[in-house]
Design a protein around this nucleic acid. Structure first.
Lengths: 151, 151
DNA sequence: ACAATTTAGTTGCAAATGTAACTAATTTCC
DNA sequence: GGAAATTAGTTACATTTGCAACTAAATTGT
C-alpha cells in the first residue's frame, strides 16, 4: 500500500532503488575498470569462478543473474585476456567448463579484497542489524519483482 | 564492515542492490512502455512536471537524477509527441521552462495511479515500518555512494 | 566594455546492450 | 532409430547509452 496517494518521484520506491543502485554500481564499476580493466560483468564472472569449480556458461548466467549473451561476451573477453580457460565438457559437446587460469586466479585474489572493501565503504556506519534488514528487504523485493514479471 | 571475509557474490551488497533494482525497473519499464509508450526517462519527466511548474531542463535533471543529455532526449521526444511544451524563459535565453500540455496532463493523470499501484504491488506484504526502514537505508547508501564517488 | 569563463542545452560518435536469429549438440518420444 | 523439440552458446543488428565536442547565451573580472 502506498504511504500516500500522491506521486512524488523522490519518495517513489522503484526510483529510490534505482538511484541508489546506479550510484553504487557506477562507483564500483569505475574502480574495477580503473584498477583492473574489468567491466562489471567480467568482474562478476571472475568473482563466481574464483569460488567454485567446473561451471558452465549457463551456471554462470544463473549465479550472476546475467543473461547468456552477456555471459558469453564477458567470458570471451576474459579468455582473450588469458584470465579464463575453457575445458572440454566430456558429456555435453555444446557446453564447456570454465575456470580461472593462473593469472586469472591472481586477479581474483587481488580483486576480492578490493570488492569487500567497497562493500565495507558503502556500508560504513551501518549496524549488523541494519545490514541484515537491508539484505532481507532487498531479497523480498527481488523475489516480488520476479514473480510479478515472470522473468 | 563485511559480515565475513569471503567474497560470495550472492551475499555481496552492491550485487544484491543491482539485481533487485534491475528486476524492479525492468518490470515497471515494460509496463510503461506497453501501456503508454513511455520510456522510464520520459515517465520520470512527466512525473516531475506533473507535480511542479516552471521547471527548466536543468531542474528536471536535478529532480530526476538523470543527466542533462538524457533529460534533453526525453524532453524532446515528449515535445514531439505533444505531451510537453517549451515556454520562453524571460530572463535567460539559453534555457526554457517546460510544462505539460493538455494531453500531457491527461497522460500524467493516467500514469500516476498506475505508478502508485506498481509500488504497492512491489511492496505488497511490507509493513509501514519496513518501508520506512528500506527508504532510510537506501537513502544512506545513495548519499554514501555519492560522497565516495563525487558524482 | 569586452575578453575569458561558465552554464544551458544539443549533437555526433563510439561503445554497451538487448533481442532475435542462428548453429550445433542433445533429448524426447513416437 | 529418427524426426521434432529443446538447450548451450554465438553472432548479427538495431537501439540505447554515455562522453566529448559543440553552439549560444550569460556571467565574471579587469
Amino acid at each position: 500500500m502506498p504511504r500516500d496517494a500522491t506521486l512524488r518521484l523522490e519518495a517513489y520506491l522503484p526510483y529510490r532503488l534505482s538511484v541508489a543502485s546506479n550510484r553504487a554500481s557506477r562507483w564500483v564499476a569505475r574502480s574495477y575498470e580503473a584498477k583492473f580493466g574489468l567491466s562489471i560483468w567480467q568482474w562478476r564472472v571472475i568473482a563466481v569462478l574464483g569460488g567454485a569449480e567446473r561451471l558452465t556458461a549457463q551456471d554462470l548466467a544463473t549465479a550472476t543473474a546475467m543473461d547468456k549473451v552477456t555471459v558469453s561476451r564477458a567470458v570471451n573477453a576474459l579468455i582473450e585476456r588469458g584470465l579464463v580457460a575453457r575445458k572440454k565438457h566430456e558429456s555435453d559437446g555444446r557446453s564447456a567448463f570454465l575456470e580461472l587460469t593462473g593469472p586469472g586466479r591472481s586477479v581474483y585474489e587481488e580483486v576480492a579484497p578490493v570488492a569487500l572493501q567497497h562493500e565495507a565503504d558503502l556500508l560504513d556506519g551501518f549496524s549488523a542489524e541494519e545490514i541484515d534488514q537491508l539484505t532481507a528487504l532487498l531479497e523480498r523485493i527481488e523475489k516480488r519483482a520476479e514473480d510479478l514479471a515472470g522473468d
